[in-house]
Amino acid sequence: MEKTIIVNAKSKTYNIEIIDHGLKKLREKVQTVWSPRKVAVITDENVGPLYANQVQRQLNAGGFVVEVLTVPAGESSKSWMNLEKIIQQLAEKHFGRQDGILALGGGVVGDLAGLAASIYLRGIALIQLPTSLLAQVDSSVGGKTAIDLAAGKNLVGTFYQPDLVLIDPTVLLTLKSRCLVEGYGEIVKCAALVGGDFWQLTGQIKSPQAIMRNANALIEASVRFKAQIVAADETETRRRQLLNLGHTLGHAVEQAAGGRLFHGEAVAIGLYQLSRLFEQKKLTAVGVTEQISTRLQAVGLPLSDDELGTTDFYRALKHDKKIKQQQLTMIYLKKIGQPEFYCYPIKQVIGWLQQELSQKKS
């Protein structure tokens, strides 16, 4: 399979290439957007041993000079310390404005490497080569880069589009089941926003193995939808906020869990809980929550967590990036395929959540 999806963002047009065994075509694809130059391949301690040598050989064969920079695996690498370390290494190795960064890894590596590329020398070239399902369907597409602060996730970042995104679904075979399944949380979110055939496809996924069997179709549908959103609203002024479905509560519970939950697991919790609460308010059609829970539970994704409704949860919620003038914008579903905006004072939202979530626990 080989599919090309074009992202026509306001700042740049670029291709997302979805290619089985795409790593074998890396040199060919990179040469379509870059002339020979120095390339910093930024990866982590899990992905590097699997693919860094192959990537380096491919690039070297195309006349590129490669430096592999490795960070620890995990969300904690999205930090000031690691960002500074990468930039220092780029400077020490005399990377210039004509050189580039290739992000080889999951969402953490993509976010961190993308931010480094966007600010080093006021911006150098970037290619995303995502190796997790979550990164392939979400974080590698659309140009969001970020690191975390103690106060919350992704509070320091930029919008910086890559020159190319190369997605190789076959690398997902190396993922542990939990890592594969967490990416499916984002896929269900996208399918719920789109509805139609995409939503019907997720209804056929009954196990983690089925995710892998249908990976190409799931990735393509997710990426096509996100590419359309990014083209319409690159910097999240309005329509791109729809992609935050499930993230308001999801980010807060993920932050409160302190690394115990994966991002896609937290999104699954946020997606289910918000749907349940809005269905109770009669703003979401009856039965939507059940459809969502069926899809999530079929692959073992969680619907709740002990951190939901804790002090740490509400502390994180108060730092949500979507709060403007003390108003929090949440995305909910009127029905599958019909998302809507819900803007309300943050204090009242927290009061509502405290009442509803405490009732659920009691």
Rank of each mutant, 00 (worst) to 15 (best):
M1W: 03
E2I: 08
E2F: 13
I6P: 07
V7T: 07
K10C: 04
K10Q: 11
T13H: 11
N15M: 07
I18N: 06
I18E: 06
H21Y: 08
L23Y: 10
K24A: 11
R27Q: 14
E28C: 11
T32C: 13
W34D: 07
V41D: 08
I42Y: 06
T43P: 03
N53F: 14
Q56V: 12
R57N: 14
Q58A: 15
L59C: 12
V66F: 08
P72T: 03
S79W: 04
N82Q: 12
N82A: 01
L83K: 08
Q88I: 11
Q89C: 00
A91V: 02
G96I: 00
I101M: 06
I101L: 03
G105A: 05
D111T: 05
G114N: 10
A116D: 03
S118E: 03
L121N: 05
L121H: 09
I124A: 08
L133S: 09
L134V: 02
S140N: 04
V141T: 05
T145D: 02
A146V: 02
A146Y: 09
I147K: 02
D148I: 04
V156D: 12
D163N: 09
L164T: 12
L172P: 06
L172T: 14
T174D: 09
S177M: 14
S177W: 01
R178W: 09
E182T: 09
A191Q: 10
L193D: 10
G195D: 13
G196F: 05
D197T: 15
T202H: 04
Q204R: 14
K206C: 05
Q209D: 12
Q209V: 00
M212L: 15
L218P: 09
E220M: 01
E220L: 03
A221G: 02
R224F: 01
Q228L: 06
V230D: 01
E234V: 01
E234D: 00
L249W: 02
A252Y: 02
G259C: 01
E265W: 00
A268E: 00
S275V: 01
E279Y: 03
K282Q: 15
L283E: 14
T284D: 00
V286I: 13
T289G: 15
E290A: 15
S293M: 12
T294I: 13
Q297M: 10
P302V: 05
P302L: 10
G309C: 13
G309L: 13
T311S: 15
K324S: 14
Q325W: 07
Q327R: 14
K334W: 01
G337L: 08
Q338E: 15
Q338T: 14
E340K: 14
Y342R: 08
I346Y: 09
I346F: 08
K347F: 07
K347W: 06
Q348T: 13
W352V: 03
L353A: 07
S358M: 07
Q359Y: 13
